[in-house]
Write a protein that binds this DNA or RNA. Structure first.
Length: 659
RNA sequence: GCCAAUGUAGCUCAGCGGUAGAGCAGCCGAUUCGUAAUCGGCAGGUCGUCAGUUCGAAUCUGACCAUUGGCUCCA
């Protein structure tokens, strides 16, 4: 047989030649340096036979992709080390059962079923053993085993996890094992690829955390213990990664939220129920103001609805069977079950239905920043990102099928406009579709409507030139949706904006309009939340800006610092003048020295510090230092106020320095 | 909801069987100062909650609550 090398040459090889044979055939130097193989663009290893006719490239330590092999092998080394660690305590080797140990971003993990729980104190000892296994330079040998033999082996070992894995593999697939260190070492069912021996593994790894993880991600299955690790080829990369984790802690919205007096969570109130402090409320209200302005231009009307409603409303909407476990439990009033609303849509449907609608009314766009309550699992709560009380940036658009595409793209344009404003460029549009198996369970049982609506969405996206990825089995129960997945400045990923198509519920509410031809027709409904919930949006923005908000969002825009007590009256005048210009300014009249006041204002990340002393009060000027532009002296108060007001009004992301 | 860790003053943390401490923040006083911490004083905690062990518990044990890291779920 032969394979194709990157330079276009053909290399003749005996049948069943492996990656190692390829490297050896090219040259002894390469054979020594080889760590892995790329076969038809995919990672493979030296131990695996090469398919005839494949394009192959031998990978050495210089190739950035070999870290993938290294991380995978480190997962095996971790598993061996955990077993040794527990066997050394007297546990039987078979009591250490293995789940899976894949490569993930930055590193690897391995899932175990163990005779005792690991604690963080175990990690250094396990890491130590890992380093010993690396120092021992064990060879990783690959072997192919018939399915029945592989199965028998794990049945005998009493390992239900591996048995299940093998049983789930197709009957015709090659089952391979990787073994390191012989009998005394470690063998694992594994598809590979791996590095050839443990000695080539980099020392730049660290076990980072312990966690529980359900076997195969299923909450009905046993919980295994997962050990996470990170690994890099270069020491600097590991250091950089660890530094980024530290940096992430500094930017964390929970830490900054407390330091900047934005919100608090109080045990007496309850988990996931944040209190907005005055400074945080300023930000919420700025977002509301922004949305109001944008939506007024886009033809939305604002409505309001109550926080509680009779059960009947959610029975009619069909939410109850799909959603009740995510709602606060019902309360009984006058022998009726009432719920606190988890979403606004049924109310908006009722508002739509409050009077007859003509095709001339469409599209009807009803917006409300209603506060909703969802019973999220305790373990899911996270600062402002995952809460139980939330204010949706909500609206529902009722339109005809003919209007659908324009309305749908209008919504996408809306959230792109917001993203431009906030400088959000790291996002993915995810087109979430149903899965046929879920019909009647997770999804309303309307197979042809699903397909039709999904086609409409895909057509709209394509005609709008929007790039997107598709996700099976991620739809809402009433229709497909677009979720915008963003990555925050500290690498947290979550859904911000959402745009959902609802082909089911308008009919349940008997929503109709009279069309041109006099026929009553059912409108489509778009659910949209381009600013997500205000909780999540602000949590995201805190991290995005590291608390250093643009002027228009800054809770306090100017801190006026009088140099001495005699300057306080002038400082008050300055603050009043700024207030009259629509700016948020506060005077620090305390008896600290100016330096301390400047520091205090900087720590609160106030964008402008206006310093006023004798010179300023005599000439009606301010001297300022700013996080946004170079420091200036003797700027006339009116010019200063106008400069800031103009930038705040424009919601400018960056400030043009005062000329 | 599940697995694990953590919980001492507003914040950051020390104390880890003999009954609670520091720095910062706060308050009072002195200082009146030109772009990241002036000095002095005062006040502040039923050590997450409730039980238990003990002559004695912040410290040991248990349950619960909350938070954090994951898993499941999700805006």
């Amino acid at each position: 047989m032969h394979v194709l090398l990157p330079d276009g040459k053909q290399l003749d090889l005996p049948e069943h030649a492996t990656g190692a044979d390829v490297a050896a055939a090219i040259g002894p130097g390469l054979a020594k340096a080889a760590l892995g193989l790329r076969v038809d663009g995919r990672l493979s290893d030296l131990q695996t036979p090469v398919p005839a006719g494949a394009s192959v490239q031998v990978l050495t330590g210089r190739d950035p992709d070999v870290i993938g092999l290294m991380r995978h092998t480190l997962a095996h080394v971790l598993a061996q080390a955990v077993r040794e660690h527990l066997v050394a305590e007297g546990h039987g080797a078979q009591s250490v059962r293995l789940g899976i140990g894949p490569v993930i971003e930055h590193g690897f993990y391995y899932d175990f079923d163990l005779p005792r729980n690991l604690t963080p104190e175990d990690l250094p000892a396990i890491e130590e053993r890992m380093r010993a296994i690396i120092a021992a330079d064990l060879e990783l040998r690959r072997s192919e085993v018939p399915r029945s033999q592989a199965l028998a082996r794990y049945v005998e070992l009493g390992d239900p996890y591996k048995v299940e894995l093998i049983e789930d593999l197709p009957a015709d697939v090659t089952i391979s094992f990787y073994e390191q260190g012989g009998e005394a070492g470690f063998t694992d069912l594994c598809r590979g690829p791996h590095v050839p021996r443990t000695g080539v593994l980099p020392p730049h790894f660290r076990l980072t955390s312990l966690a529980g993880a359900y076997w195969r991600g299923d909450e009905r299955r046993p919980m295994l213990q997962r050990v996470y690790g990170v690994a890099f080829r270069e020491a600097e990369a590991l250091e950089k990664h660890l530094w980024q984790l530290e940096e992430a802690k500094r930017r964390d919205h929970r830490k900054l939220g407390a330091e900047l007096d934005i919100f608090v969570l109080d045990e007496d109130i309850g988990p996931g129920l944040p209190l907005w402090l005055p400074r945080g409320t300023v930000i919420v209200e700025e977002l509301e103001r922004l949305a109001h302005e944008v939506e007024r231009r886009a033809g939305y009307q604002h409505v309001r609805s109550p926080h509680v409603t009779k059960e009947q409303l959610f029975i009619k909407s069909g939410h109850l069977p799909y959603y009740e476990q995510s709602m606060f439990p019902a309360m009984v009033i006058d022998d009726q079950r009432y719920f606190i609303k988890p979403m606004n849509c049924p109310f908006h449907h009722k508002i739509y239905a409050a009077r007859p609608r003509s095709y001339r009314d469409l599209p009807v766009r009803l917006a409300e920043y209603g506060t909703c309550y969802r019973y999220e699992d305790h373990g899911a709560l996270m600062g402002l990102m995952r809460v139980r009380s939330m204010q949706m940036n909500d609206a529902h658009i009722y339109c005809s099928e003919a209007q659908f595409e324009a309305e749908f793209l209008g919504v996408i344009e809306l959230y792109l406009e917001y993203f431009r404003l906030f400088g959000i460029d790291d996002y993915v549009m995810r087109f979430s579709k149903h899965a046929p198996e879920g019909l009647g369970k997770k999804y309303v049982d309307e197979p042809e409507l699903w397909l039709r609506t999904e086609t409409m969405v895909r057509n709209a996206l394509e005609s709008g030139g929007v790039t997107f990825v598709e996700a099976e089995d991620e739809a809402a129960f009433y229709g497909p949706k677009i979720d915008v997945q963003v990555t925050s400045a500290i690498g947290r990923e979550f859904t911000l904006a959402t745009n959902q198509v609802d082909f089911a519920i308008p009919a349940r509410f008997d929503l109709t309009y009279v069309d041109e031809d006099g026929q009553r027709k059912t409108p489509l409904c778009l659910h949209r939340a381009p600013l997500s919930t205000h909780e999540r949006m602000i949590g995201f923005l805190i991290e995005h800006y590291a608390g250093d908000f643009p002027l228009w969002l800054a809770p306090e825009q100017v801190r006026v610092v009088p140099i001495a007590d005699r300057h306080v009256p002038y400082a008050e005048q300055v603050a009043a003048r700024l207030g009259a210009a629509g700016l948020r300014a506060e005077v620090d009249a305390g008896n600290d020295r100016m330096n301390a006041k400047v520091r205090a204002a900087e720590l609160k990340k106030v964008p402008y510090i206006a310093i006023v002393g004798d010179k300023e009060s005599e000439a009606a000027t301010v001297s300022f230092r700013s996080r946004k532009e170079p420091q200036r002296q003797g700027v006339h108060l009116d010019a200063f106020a106008a400069h800031l007001a103009a930038h705040a009004r424009a919601r400018a992301g960056a400030v043009t320095p005062l000329g």
